[in-house]
Write a protein that binds this DNA or RNA. Structure first.
Lengths: 206, 206, 206, 206
DNA sequence: AATGAATGAGAGTTCATTCAT
DNA sequence: TATGAATGAACTCTCATTCAT
């Protein structure tokens, strides 16, 4: 069906995705109802179906919205010539900023994507895997150059970074007063240096 | 005449909690239905209400079951005289083992506890906070003794350990083939030493 | 099935009827549940079925208990040689006292008997009709003797007495502090003399 | 563009109230089921909830519908300058007609209002009390003017009128062939003059 | 004489979805 | 583009009833 007013349609659909993201983030996919989403947009429940074929489709769109940009962002980071530390910082920054900026859609992707139908989930998984893969590559490179210890398993490392970011992402979504900048700094520092004091950092400072 | 089987109720109730844990972990609280839980126990849906007053109460019991023992375990770790490294290892081990042993109840506590009614949530929160507090204390002590760097914020550190464990816990629950021992080792190592080569590289370069 | 202890059985069954009467009176037949009845007796829900085959049977017994004695009482009143006024007073007294004495069973008979299965309802109706019939006879006699006006329809009159008594019976059950004696007096007076002042009462006093 | 049928909701809701009144009157609140109500309206069970939030709310609306107009009617009667007899006749007529006209809602108010939640019940009680109060006032006035005997307690009298009307109301609802006009006449006559022959007999005897 | 445990039917309620307007 | 009205399936929960012990 042709849309009478394509611009308005696009605008409203985006609003619908953001509304759905917020509601799904707060109540979960099954706990949320389409009425909540519609009301948050200022339209009526039935009207939502002008923009989505189903609640499930809405979830799919939210999930995609949640990771698309941030996966693309990772492409940029990976192909940049920066140092390992810079790349890791950029990754953590991009990841955590996403939680603040895009209406909790990333949280929804993490927590609710498993309720998506197979087909859709697979497509999203590809994006997620690409993200993790590129992060792995960064670790592989850093191991070759000696920046990262040999004993680190790249697969594990990538997973760990993602896990840590998501854990803090949750806290960020729940607590709007949390200082994003500080969290980024602390996370990056922890991942790079660990908790314990080593002489080398000492010597590096000299 | 004594009943033939006086603890049957207790036993069945425990079974109900485990069944609920499994179902909630898989489908989420709102996505799960009481029929699934009952069938997993081998009883009929209505019979479930002989053991729970409501689905919500079941969630509460699952959450409590999920963290009670592991909070108590942490009490033991905190009061032991071990080194920081040993304590951290013990914590990570206890935390991650929980995910394997107690039928996903810990995952449910993490993901679904917010659907609990206020009163119950507060009571659980106390336990959760005690856990984090004791972890913070461990970090405070380790900072005093110089094992952990001054620049580490104890609050952040505790949160980070918990977040990392939960992130891996999710993966452990989803993938039963994951080598628990390796994950524990990798996590502990990462948290203590970070990714980058320091002590060793430095000395090798000399 | 033979009862092991017939006396106890009879005693307990009577207790069950009284318990059921109280619960049905308070919550209505459909609003009440067998657990409430059992608990009021101090036994468990399942044990109730030792005394009743079904909830419906319990209702039947309550209804019967509610009117049996009071119908018999009416037999005595009708066959006594008293004056109309005395008979009416006796009827009202018997009717209203019933509400106080027999555990609200009469209220249950009035309000809930229509939920009884046909067969049972018919049997009870016979008793109820006998009651009304005898009241009608009293009016017929009083009309012949001139005590009651010719213009009074006996059928209507009997119905009215019963209706008035039941209306006050409800109030008596709801409010235990209501002075039964006063209500009886007022009702009888109203029924005999009406509200308005007539010269005759005046002249009678002279 | 205006909707073709802007009052459809209001109309349907009123139909729902009438349907609920009929069903509640026949089976009682707890004995009735929402399916019956919906079917009587010609809609499906779930659709009922478009008009009511709950079965309980339906009961509340039915009760209100049952007494609202008739309380207002009483306001008119009380403030009219009619004689006591005329006022009493008007009251009885209004009360008993209500039972025929408004789909048994008044019966529901009498028998089922106690199953309403506290708050709602209190609001209705105010209306009911106003009705009784005004009836009491009528009696007080009539006592002052000597039409009603001194020995009549106004409170009791009002209660008795209401009780008698409700008792006959029940019979009217149950038996559609009952001659409303006759019942009204008989009731009024009984209340005013009582059963016994006084004025007339006396004069006849002279 | 009484009970604990279970059942199954049915209730009230919610909600994604449809569709004429 | 949006809505009001309706639907039907699913879900939670209640409860009379059964029965082995």
């Amino acid at each position: 069906m042709q849309k009478a007013n394509p611009e308005k349609y696009t605008r409203q659909r985006q609003a619908a995705i953001r509304a759905a993201a917020a509601v799904f983030a707060e109540k979960g996919f099954h706990g949320a109802c389409t009425k909540d989403i519609a009301e948050r947009m200022g339209i009526k429940q039935g009207s939502l179906y002008y923009y989505f074929d189903s609640k499930e489709e809405a979830l799919g769109e939210v999930c995609l919205f949640g990771i698309r940009d941030y996966v693309e962002h990772m492409d940029g980071i990976a192909s940049s010539g920066q140092s390992f530390e810079a790349k890791l910082t950029a990754t953590v920054t991009s990841h955590l900023s996403s939680y603040r900026e895009r209406n909790e859609a990333l949280k929804v992707y993490n927590d609710e994507r498993l309720y998506l139908p197979e087909a859709r989930r697979r497509r999203l998984k590809k994006l997620g895997s690409r993200y993790r893969q590129q992060l792995e590559n960064i670790f592989d490179d850093a191991k070759k150059s000696g920046t990262v210890r040999d004993t680190i398993d790249s697969r594990f490392a990538a997973q760990a970074v993602i896990g840590m970011c998501n854990a803090w992402g949750d806290l960020i979504v729940r607590d709007p007063d949390l200082d994003l900048f500080k969290v980024i700094q602390n996370c990056t520092d922890l991942l790079i240096n660990g908790f314990t004091d080593t002489k080398n950092t000492e010597s590096q400072r000299n």
